[in-house]
Nucleic acid binder design. Structure first.
Lengths: 226, 226
DNA sequence: CAAGTATTCAACTGAGTGCTTGATTAGTCA
DNA sequence: TGACTAATCAAGCACTCAGTTGAATACTTG
Protein backbone atom coordinates (compact mmCIF):
# COMPACT_ATOMS: atom_id res chain seq x y z
CA UNK A 1 0.00 0.00 0.00
CA UNK A 2 2.16 2.83 -1.23
CA UNK A 3 0.39 6.05 -2.01
CA UNK A 4 1.58 8.23 -4.88
CA UNK A 5 2.58 10.73 -2.26
CA UNK A 6 4.92 8.22 -0.63
CA UNK A 7 6.33 7.15 -3.95
CA UNK A 8 7.11 10.77 -4.77
CA UNK A 9 8.92 11.35 -1.50
CA UNK A 10 10.86 8.14 -1.86
CA UNK A 11 11.89 9.14 -5.36
CA UNK A 12 13.07 12.57 -4.24
CA UNK A 13 15.12 11.40 -1.29
CA UNK A 14 16.51 8.63 -3.44
CA UNK A 15 17.88 11.33 -5.71
CA UNK A 16 19.33 13.34 -2.85
CA UNK A 17 20.97 10.17 -1.63
CA UNK A 18 22.78 9.82 -4.94
CA UNK A 19 24.84 12.81 -3.89
CA UNK A 20 25.16 11.48 -0.37
CA UNK A 21 26.44 8.14 -1.60
CA UNK A 22 28.93 9.88 -3.84
CA UNK A 23 30.51 11.59 -0.85
CA UNK A 24 30.21 8.66 1.54
CA UNK A 25 33.56 7.09 0.67
CA UNK A 26 36.74 8.69 2.02
CA UNK A 27 38.65 8.11 -1.17
CA UNK A 28 35.98 9.71 -3.29
CA UNK A 29 36.11 12.78 -1.09
CA UNK A 30 39.84 12.92 -1.56
CA UNK A 31 39.43 12.74 -5.32
CA UNK A 32 36.79 15.45 -5.20
CA UNK A 33 39.07 17.64 -3.15
CA UNK A 34 41.88 17.16 -5.65
CA UNK A 35 39.59 17.90 -8.56
CA UNK A 36 38.53 21.15 -6.92
CA UNK A 37 42.13 22.27 -7.42
CA UNK A 38 41.89 21.67 -11.14
CA UNK A 39 41.31 19.04 -13.82
CA UNK A 40 43.44 15.94 -13.90
CA UNK A 41 43.91 12.59 -15.59
CA UNK A 42 42.95 9.31 -13.97
CA UNK A 43 46.55 8.35 -13.55
CA UNK A 44 47.49 11.58 -11.81
CA UNK A 45 44.52 11.27 -9.46
CA UNK A 46 45.40 7.66 -8.70
CA UNK A 47 48.91 8.58 -7.76
CA UNK A 48 47.98 11.59 -5.65
CA UNK A 49 45.28 9.72 -3.78
CA UNK A 50 47.41 6.59 -3.35
CA UNK A 51 44.97 4.35 -5.20
CA UNK A 52 45.20 1.78 -7.95
CA UNK A 53 44.26 3.13 -11.36
CA UNK A 54 41.36 0.71 -11.77
CA UNK A 55 39.98 1.65 -8.39
CA UNK A 56 40.35 5.34 -9.13
CA UNK A 57 38.51 4.89 -12.40
CA UNK A 58 35.64 3.23 -10.61
CA UNK A 59 35.38 5.95 -8.00
CA UNK A 60 35.42 8.56 -10.70
CA UNK A 61 32.57 6.85 -12.45
CA UNK A 62 30.55 6.98 -9.27
CA UNK A 63 31.26 10.70 -8.98
CA UNK A 64 30.28 11.13 -12.58
CA UNK A 65 27.10 9.16 -12.01
CA UNK A 66 26.18 11.70 -9.35
CA UNK A 67 26.94 14.48 -11.85
CA UNK A 68 29.63 15.90 -9.62
CA UNK A 69 32.39 15.59 -12.18
CA UNK A 70 32.69 15.50 -15.96
CA UNK A 71 35.05 13.43 -18.05
CA UNK A 72 36.51 14.42 -21.36
CA UNK A 73 38.61 12.21 -23.56
CA UNK A 74 41.76 14.01 -24.61
CA UNK A 75 43.72 11.80 -26.94
CA UNK A 76 45.15 8.99 -24.90
CA UNK A 77 44.10 10.51 -21.61
CA UNK A 78 40.78 11.09 -19.97
CA UNK A 79 40.59 14.36 -18.15
CA UNK A 80 38.24 14.60 -15.21
CA UNK A 81 37.07 17.92 -13.88
CA UNK A 82 34.55 19.33 -11.42
CA UNK A 83 31.21 19.65 -13.19
CA UNK A 84 30.30 22.99 -11.66
CA UNK A 85 31.63 25.51 -9.18
CA UNK A 86 28.70 24.72 -6.95
CA UNK A 87 30.20 21.27 -6.41
CA UNK A 88 33.28 22.85 -4.86
CA UNK A 89 31.14 25.02 -2.64
CA UNK A 90 29.26 21.92 -1.57
CA UNK A 91 32.51 20.19 -0.74
CA UNK A 92 33.53 23.21 1.30
CA UNK A 93 30.22 23.11 3.13
CA UNK A 94 30.78 19.46 3.96
CA UNK A 95 34.30 20.15 5.13
CA UNK A 96 33.17 23.14 7.14
CA UNK A 97 30.45 21.14 8.82
CA UNK A 98 32.91 18.38 9.67
CA UNK A 99 35.26 20.92 11.20
CA UNK A 100 32.45 22.49 13.15
CA UNK A 101 30.78 19.33 14.42
CA UNK A 102 33.39 16.59 14.54
CA UNK A 103 35.94 17.19 17.25
CA UNK A 104 38.07 14.44 15.74
CA UNK A 105 38.93 16.56 12.73
CA UNK A 106 40.49 19.22 14.87
CA UNK A 107 42.18 16.62 17.02
CA UNK A 108 43.73 14.71 14.13
CA UNK A 109 44.90 17.92 12.49
CA UNK A 110 46.39 19.25 15.67
CA UNK A 111 48.24 16.02 16.36
CA UNK A 112 49.76 15.96 12.93
CA UNK A 113 50.69 19.61 12.69
CA UNK A 114 51.95 19.84 16.24
CA UNK A 115 54.52 17.13 15.72
CA UNK A 116 55.78 19.00 12.67
CA UNK A 117 56.34 22.13 14.72
CA UNK A 118 53.07 23.99 14.84
CA UNK A 119 52.69 27.39 13.27
CA UNK A 120 50.03 30.01 13.44
CA UNK A 121 48.30 30.39 10.11
CA UNK A 122 47.34 33.66 8.50
CA UNK A 123 43.62 33.89 7.88
CA UNK A 124 42.53 34.55 4.30
CA UNK A 125 40.83 37.86 5.09
CA UNK A 126 43.97 39.10 6.84
CA UNK A 127 46.10 38.05 3.88
CA UNK A 128 43.76 39.84 1.51
CA UNK A 129 44.26 43.08 3.44
CA UNK A 130 48.02 42.73 3.53
CA UNK A 131 48.18 41.91 -0.14
CA UNK A 132 46.23 45.07 -0.91
CA UNK A 133 48.72 47.07 1.11
CA UNK A 134 51.53 45.32 -0.78
CA UNK A 135 53.09 44.07 2.43
CA UNK A 136 53.66 40.43 1.58
CA UNK A 137 54.88 38.07 -1.09
CA UNK A 138 52.25 35.43 -1.75
CA UNK A 139 53.64 32.06 -2.66
CA UNK A 140 51.75 29.23 -4.36
CA UNK A 141 53.64 26.00 -3.69
CA UNK A 142 51.33 23.62 -5.56
CA UNK A 143 52.32 21.86 -8.78
CA UNK A 144 52.38 24.25 -11.75
CA UNK A 145 49.28 22.75 -13.42
CA UNK A 146 47.22 23.62 -10.39
CA UNK A 147 48.68 27.10 -10.32
CA UNK A 148 47.73 27.46 -13.95
CA UNK A 149 44.18 26.22 -13.27
CA UNK A 150 43.70 29.15 -10.91
CA UNK A 151 45.67 30.99 -8.25
CA UNK A 152 45.50 33.95 -5.93
CA UNK A 153 46.14 37.14 -7.91
CA UNK A 154 49.77 38.16 -7.80
CA UNK A 155 50.99 34.91 -6.28
CA UNK A 156 54.37 33.49 -7.27
CA UNK A 157 54.45 29.85 -8.36
CA UNK A 158 57.23 27.76 -6.90
CA UNK A 159 56.34 24.11 -6.30
CA UNK A 160 57.48 23.03 -2.87
CA UNK A 161 59.95 20.54 -4.33
CA UNK A 162 61.77 23.24 -6.26
CA UNK A 163 61.70 25.83 -3.52
CA UNK A 164 65.16 25.09 -2.14
CA UNK A 165 66.80 25.83 -5.47
CA UNK A 166 64.73 28.89 -6.29
CA UNK A 167 64.99 30.89 -3.09
CA UNK A 168 66.68 33.76 -4.88
CA UNK A 169 63.41 34.49 -6.68
CA UNK A 170 61.94 35.64 -3.39
CA UNK A 171 62.59 39.16 -2.10
CA UNK A 172 64.65 38.66 1.04
CA UNK A 173 63.45 41.20 3.56
CA UNK A 174 59.75 40.77 3.00
CA UNK A 175 57.27 38.50 4.67
CA UNK A 176 56.21 35.45 2.70
CA UNK A 177 52.81 33.81 2.98
CA UNK A 178 52.65 30.35 1.42
CA UNK A 179 49.50 28.46 0.55
CA UNK A 180 48.67 25.16 -1.09
CA UNK A 181 45.50 23.13 -1.53
CA UNK A 182 43.83 23.87 1.73
CA UNK A 183 43.90 23.19 5.46
CA UNK A 184 44.77 19.50 5.15
CA UNK A 185 47.53 19.89 2.64
CA UNK A 186 51.07 19.88 3.96
CA UNK A 187 52.92 21.49 1.11
CA UNK A 188 52.65 24.96 2.56
CA UNK A 189 53.75 23.65 5.94
CA UNK A 190 56.89 22.21 4.42
CA UNK A 191 57.54 25.39 2.50
CA UNK A 192 57.27 27.54 5.59
CA UNK A 193 59.55 25.20 7.52
CA UNK A 194 62.18 25.51 4.82
CA UNK A 195 61.81 29.26 4.43
CA UNK A 196 62.20 29.88 8.14
CA UNK A 197 65.30 27.74 8.24
CA UNK A 198 66.72 29.94 5.51
CA UNK A 199 66.05 33.12 7.43
CA UNK A 200 62.80 34.25 5.87
CA UNK A 201 59.82 35.54 7.78
CA UNK A 202 57.22 33.07 6.57
CA UNK A 203 53.68 32.08 7.45
CA UNK A 204 51.20 29.77 5.89
CA UNK A 205 47.61 30.39 4.96
CA UNK A 206 45.25 27.50 5.66
CA UNK A 207 42.78 28.38 2.97
CA UNK A 208 43.33 27.35 -0.63
CA UNK A 209 42.19 28.76 -3.93
CA UNK A 210 38.83 27.03 -3.59
CA UNK A 211 38.08 28.84 -0.34
CA UNK A 212 39.34 32.06 -1.87
CA UNK A 213 37.01 31.71 -4.82
CA UNK A 214 34.09 30.67 -2.61
CA UNK A 215 34.41 33.98 -0.78
CA UNK A 216 33.74 35.66 -4.07
CA UNK A 217 37.28 36.95 -4.47
CA UNK A 218 38.99 37.10 -7.79
CA UNK A 219 41.12 34.19 -8.93
CA UNK A 220 43.76 34.54 -11.62
CA UNK A 221 44.25 32.10 -14.51
CA UNK A 222 42.21 29.03 -15.31
CA UNK A 223 38.87 30.15 -16.59
CA UNK A 224 36.62 27.76 -18.45
CA UNK A 225 38.13 25.16 -20.77
CA UNK A 226 41.88 25.59 -21.33
CA UNK B 1 54.58 1.52 3.59
CA UNK B 2 52.24 4.20 4.81
CA UNK B 3 53.85 7.51 5.54
CA UNK B 4 52.52 9.68 8.39
CA UNK B 5 51.40 12.07 5.70
CA UNK B 6 49.18 9.41 4.11
CA UNK B 7 47.83 8.32 7.46
CA UNK B 8 46.87 11.90 8.21
CA UNK B 9 45.03 12.34 4.93
CA UNK B 10 43.25 9.04 5.34
CA UNK B 11 42.18 10.02 8.83
CA UNK B 12 40.83 13.39 7.65
CA UNK B 13 38.85 12.06 4.73
CA UNK B 14 37.59 9.25 6.92
CA UNK B 15 36.08 11.92 9.14
CA UNK B 16 34.54 13.81 6.25
CA UNK B 17 33.07 10.52 5.07
CA UNK B 18 31.28 10.16 8.40
CA UNK B 19 29.07 13.01 7.29
CA UNK B 20 28.82 11.60 3.80
CA UNK B 21 27.72 8.22 5.10
CA UNK B 22 25.13 9.87 7.30
CA UNK B 23 23.48 11.46 4.27
CA UNK B 24 23.92 8.50 1.94
CA UNK B 25 20.65 6.78 2.82
CA UNK B 26 17.38 8.20 1.47
CA UNK B 27 15.51 7.58 4.67
CA UNK B 28 18.10 9.35 6.76
CA UNK B 29 17.80 12.36 4.50
CA UNK B 30 14.08 12.32 4.97
CA UNK B 31 14.50 12.21 8.73
CA UNK B 32 16.99 15.05 8.57
CA UNK B 33 14.59 17.09 6.49
CA UNK B 34 11.82 16.50 8.98
CA UNK B 35 14.06 17.41 11.90
CA UNK B 36 14.96 20.68 10.20
CA UNK B 37 11.30 21.63 10.70
CA UNK B 38 11.56 21.11 14.41
CA UNK B 39 12.29 18.55 17.15
CA UNK B 40 10.33 15.34 17.27
CA UNK B 41 10.05 11.98 19.00
CA UNK B 42 11.17 8.74 17.44
CA UNK B 43 7.62 7.57 17.03
CA UNK B 44 6.52 10.73 15.25
CA UNK B 45 9.48 10.54 12.92
CA UNK B 46 8.82 6.89 12.21
CA UNK B 47 5.25 7.61 11.25
CA UNK B 48 6.02 10.60 9.10
CA UNK B 49 8.80 8.86 7.25
CA UNK B 50 6.85 5.63 6.87
CA UNK B 51 9.40 3.55 8.75
CA UNK B 52 9.29 1.02 11.56
CA UNK B 53 10.17 2.46 14.93
CA UNK B 54 13.20 0.20 15.35
CA UNK B 55 14.52 1.16 11.98
CA UNK B 56 13.97 4.84 12.67
CA UNK B 57 15.81 4.53 15.93
CA UNK B 58 18.77 2.99 14.15
CA UNK B 59 18.89 5.68 11.51
CA UNK B 60 18.71 8.34 14.18
CA UNK B 61 21.64 6.79 15.95
CA UNK B 62 23.67 6.98 12.76
CA UNK B 63 22.76 10.65 12.41
CA UNK B 64 23.72 11.19 16.01
CA UNK B 65 26.99 9.37 15.48
CA UNK B 66 27.78 11.90 12.77
CA UNK B 67 26.87 14.70 15.24
CA UNK B 68 24.11 15.95 12.98
CA UNK B 69 21.37 15.54 15.55
CA UNK B 70 21.07 15.49 19.33
CA UNK B 71 18.82 13.32 21.46
CA UNK B 72 17.30 14.28 24.76
CA UNK B 73 15.34 11.99 26.99
CA UNK B 74 12.06 13.64 28.01
CA UNK B 75 10.22 11.35 30.35
CA UNK B 76 9.00 8.42 28.37
CA UNK B 77 9.95 9.94 25.02
CA UNK B 78 13.24 10.70 23.41
CA UNK B 79 13.24 13.96 21.55
CA UNK B 80 15.58 14.29 18.61
CA UNK B 81 16.58 17.66 17.22
CA UNK B 82 19.02 19.14 14.74
CA UNK B 83 22.33 19.67 16.49
CA UNK B 84 23.08 23.01 14.91
CA UNK B 85 21.63 25.44 12.39
CA UNK B 86 24.62 24.75 10.18
CA UNK B 87 23.28 21.23 9.70
CA UNK B 88 20.12 22.63 8.11
CA UNK B 89 22.16 24.86 5.87
CA UNK B 90 24.19 21.85 4.83
CA UNK B 91 21.03 19.95 4.03
CA UNK B 92 19.85 22.88 1.96
CA UNK B 93 23.17 22.92 0.12
CA UNK B 94 22.79 19.23 -0.66
CA UNK B 95 19.24 19.72 -1.83
CA UNK B 96 20.21 22.72 -3.90
CA UNK B 97 23.04 20.84 -5.54
CA UNK B 98 20.74 17.95 -6.35
CA UNK B 99 18.24 20.33 -7.91
CA UNK B 100 20.96 22.01 -9.90
CA UNK B 101 22.81 18.92 -11.10
CA UNK B 102 20.34 16.05 -11.18
CA UNK B 103 17.76 16.46 -13.90
CA UNK B 104 15.78 13.63 -12.35
CA UNK B 105 14.81 15.76 -9.36
CA UNK B 106 13.11 18.29 -11.55
CA UNK B 107 11.56 15.58 -13.66
CA UNK B 108 10.11 13.63 -10.73
CA UNK B 109 8.77 16.81 -9.14
CA UNK B 110 7.21 18.01 -12.34
CA UNK B 111 5.55 14.67 -12.97
CA UNK B 112 4.01 14.59 -9.54
CA UNK B 113 2.89 18.19 -9.36
CA UNK B 114 1.62 18.28 -12.92
CA UNK B 115 -0.80 15.46 -12.35
CA UNK B 116 -2.15 17.32 -9.34
CA UNK B 117 -2.89 20.38 -11.42
CA UNK B 118 0.28 22.41 -11.61
CA UNK B 119 0.50 25.83 -10.08
CA UNK B 120 3.03 28.61 -10.27
CA UNK B 121 4.73 29.12 -6.97
CA UNK B 122 5.50 32.47 -5.40
CA UNK B 123 9.20 32.91 -4.80
CA UNK B 124 10.27 33.68 -1.23
CA UNK B 125 11.77 37.07 -2.07
CA UNK B 126 8.57 38.11 -3.83
CA UNK B 127 6.51 36.99 -0.86
CA UNK B 128 8.74 38.94 1.47
CA UNK B 129 8.08 42.12 -0.51
CA UNK B 130 4.34 41.57 -0.59
CA UNK B 131 4.23 40.81 3.11
CA UNK B 132 6.00 44.07 3.83
CA UNK B 133 3.40 45.90 1.78
CA UNK B 134 0.68 44.06 3.68
CA UNK B 135 -0.79 42.65 0.51
CA UNK B 136 -1.17 39.01 1.40
CA UNK B 137 -2.28 36.63 4.10
CA UNK B 138 0.50 34.16 4.81
CA UNK B 139 -0.72 30.72 5.77
CA UNK B 140 1.32 28.03 7.52
CA UNK B 141 -0.39 24.69 6.91
CA UNK B 142 2.03 22.47 8.82
CA UNK B 143 1.13 20.72 12.06
CA UNK B 144 0.94 23.14 14.98
CA UNK B 145 4.12 21.83 16.66
CA UNK B 146 6.12 22.76 13.64
CA UNK B 147 4.49 26.16 13.51
CA UNK B 148 5.43 26.62 17.12
CA UNK B 149 9.02 25.56 16.46
CA UNK B 150 9.35 28.48 14.08
CA UNK B 151 7.29 30.16 11.38
CA UNK B 152 7.32 33.09 9.00
CA UNK B 153 6.49 36.28 10.92
CA UNK B 154 2.82 37.11 10.80
CA UNK B 155 1.77 33.77 9.34
CA UNK B 156 -1.52 32.19 10.37
CA UNK B 157 -1.42 28.58 11.51
CA UNK B 158 -4.07 26.31 10.09
CA UNK B 159 -3.00 22.70 9.54
CA UNK B 160 -4.08 21.51 6.12
CA UNK B 161 -6.41 18.92 7.63
CA UNK B 162 -8.38 21.56 9.52
CA UNK B 163 -8.44 24.10 6.73
CA UNK B 164 -11.85 23.15 5.36
CA UNK B 165 -13.57 23.85 8.67
CA UNK B 166 -11.62 27.03 9.43
CA UNK B 167 -11.99 28.97 6.21
CA UNK B 168 -13.83 31.77 7.96
CA UNK B 169 -10.60 32.71 9.76
CA UNK B 170 -9.19 33.89 6.46
CA UNK B 171 -10.02 37.35 5.11
CA UNK B 172 -12.05 36.68 1.99
CA UNK B 173 -10.99 39.25 -0.59
CA UNK B 174 -7.27 39.02 -0.03
CA UNK B 175 -4.68 36.85 -1.67
CA UNK B 176 -3.46 33.90 0.37
CA UNK B 177 0.02 32.43 0.12
CA UNK B 178 0.38 29.02 1.71
CA UNK B 179 3.62 27.32 2.61
CA UNK B 180 4.61 24.09 4.31
CA UNK B 181 7.90 22.22 4.79
CA UNK B 182 9.53 22.98 1.50
CA UNK B 183 9.50 22.25 -2.19
CA UNK B 184 8.81 18.52 -1.83
CA UNK B 185 6.04 18.81 0.67
CA UNK B 186 2.49 18.59 -0.65
CA UNK B 187 0.56 20.15 2.17
CA UNK B 188 0.64 23.62 0.66
CA UNK B 189 -0.38 22.19 -2.70
CA UNK B 190 -3.45 20.61 -1.15
CA UNK B 191 -4.27 23.79 0.72
CA UNK B 192 -4.10 25.92 -2.41
CA UNK B 193 -6.26 23.41 -4.29
CA UNK B 194 -8.91 23.63 -1.60
CA UNK B 195 -8.73 27.41 -1.27
CA UNK B 196 -9.15 27.95 -4.99
CA UNK B 197 -12.11 25.64 -5.07
CA UNK B 198 -13.66 27.79 -2.35
CA UNK B 199 -13.18 30.98 -4.32
CA UNK B 200 -9.99 32.31 -2.79
CA UNK B 201 -7.06 33.71 -4.72
CA UNK B 202 -4.34 31.42 -3.48
CA UNK B 203 -0.75 30.59 -4.34
CA UNK B 204 1.84 28.44 -2.75
CA UNK B 205 5.40 29.25 -1.81
CA UNK B 206 7.91 26.47 -2.47
CA UNK B 207 10.33 27.52 0.20
CA UNK B 208 9.85 26.54 3.81
CA UNK B 209 10.91 28.05 7.10
CA UNK B 210 14.34 26.49 6.77
CA UNK B 211 15.00 28.27 3.49
CA UNK B 212 13.58 31.46 4.98
CA UNK B 213 15.93 31.28 7.93
CA UNK B 214 18.88 30.35 5.74
CA UNK B 215 18.41 33.61 3.86
CA UNK B 216 18.97 35.38 7.11
CA UNK B 217 15.37 36.49 7.50
CA UNK B 218 13.66 36.61 10.82
CA UNK B 219 11.67 33.62 12.01
CA UNK B 220 9.03 33.87 14.70
CA UNK B 221 8.65 31.45 17.62
CA UNK B 222 10.82 28.51 18.47
CA UNK B 223 14.13 29.82 19.68
CA UNK B 224 16.48 27.54 21.55
CA UNK B 225 15.06 24.95 23.95
CA UNK B 226 11.28 25.22 24.43
C1' DC C 1 50.04 -2.03 -39.42
C1' DA C 2 52.03 -3.33 -34.93
C1' DA C 3 53.65 -2.02 -30.42
C1' DG C 4 52.66 0.63 -26.54
C1' DT C 5 49.80 3.22 -23.23
C1' DA C 6 45.72 5.11 -20.49
C1' DT C 7 41.53 3.74 -19.18
C1' DT C 8 37.69 0.81 -18.52
C1' DC C 9 35.38 -3.60 -17.92
C1' DA C 10 34.23 -8.07 -15.66
C1' DA C 11 34.40 -11.25 -12.14
C1' DC C 12 35.34 -12.05 -7.47
C1' DT C 13 35.93 -11.47 -2.29
C1' DG C 14 35.21 -9.84 2.24
C1' DA C 15 33.23 -6.21 4.83
C1' DG C 16 29.42 -3.30 5.65
C1' DT C 17 24.43 -1.72 5.43
C1' DG C 18 19.25 -1.43 5.67
C1' DC C 19 15.57 -3.61 7.37
C1' DT C 20 12.93 -7.11 10.03
C1' DT C 21 11.76 -9.68 14.16
C1' DG C 22 11.58 -10.58 18.91
C1' DA C 23 13.56 -9.60 23.35
C1' DT C 24 15.17 -5.93 26.71
C1' DT C 25 15.63 -1.61 28.96
C1' DA C 26 13.92 2.71 31.08
C1' DG C 27 10.45 5.35 32.27
C1' DT C 28 5.05 6.52 33.58
C1' DC C 29 0.83 5.94 35.81
C1' DA C 30 -2.85 3.49 38.12
C1' DT D 1 3.91 -2.96 42.90
C1' DG D 2 2.51 -4.20 38.29
C1' DA D 3 0.59 -3.11 33.77
C1' DC D 4 1.81 -0.25 30.04
C1' DT D 5 4.66 2.41 26.73
C1' DA D 6 8.65 4.49 24.03
C1' DA D 7 12.86 3.40 22.65
C1' DT D 8 16.82 0.52 22.12
C1' DC D 9 19.27 -3.74 21.50
C1' DA D 10 20.66 -8.22 19.31
C1' DA D 11 20.64 -11.44 15.77
C1' DG D 12 19.88 -12.61 11.16
C1' DC D 13 19.04 -11.98 6.02
C1' DA D 14 19.46 -10.06 1.59
C1' DC D 15 21.91 -6.83 -0.67
C1' DT D 16 25.38 -3.37 -1.74
C1' DC D 17 30.00 -1.72 -1.98
C1' DA D 18 35.28 -0.95 -1.93
C1' DG D 19 39.05 -2.93 -3.56
C1' DT D 20 41.87 -6.59 -6.28
C1' DT D 21 43.18 -8.96 -10.43
C1' DG D 22 43.45 -9.88 -15.16
C1' DA D 23 41.53 -9.13 -19.60
C1' DA D 24 39.55 -5.88 -23.01
C1' DT D 25 39.09 -1.37 -25.26
C1' DA D 26 40.50 2.86 -27.51
C1' DC D 27 43.74 5.79 -28.89
C1' DT D 28 48.70 7.26 -30.31
C1' DT D 29 53.05 6.67 -32.39
C1' DG D 30 56.66 4.49 -34.91
Amino acid sequence: MTTPHRRFKDAIYEQLARLGKAVSAPKRLELLDLLCQGPRTVEALAEQAALSVANTSQHLQVLRGARLVDAEKKGLWVEYRIADDEVCRFFLALRGLAEARLAEVDQVTREYFDERGAMEAVEAGELMRRVKRGEVTVLDVRPPEEYRAGHIPGALSIPVGELKGRLKELPKHREVVAYCRGPYCVMAVEAVELLRKKGFTAHRMEEGVVDWRARGWRVEGGGAQP
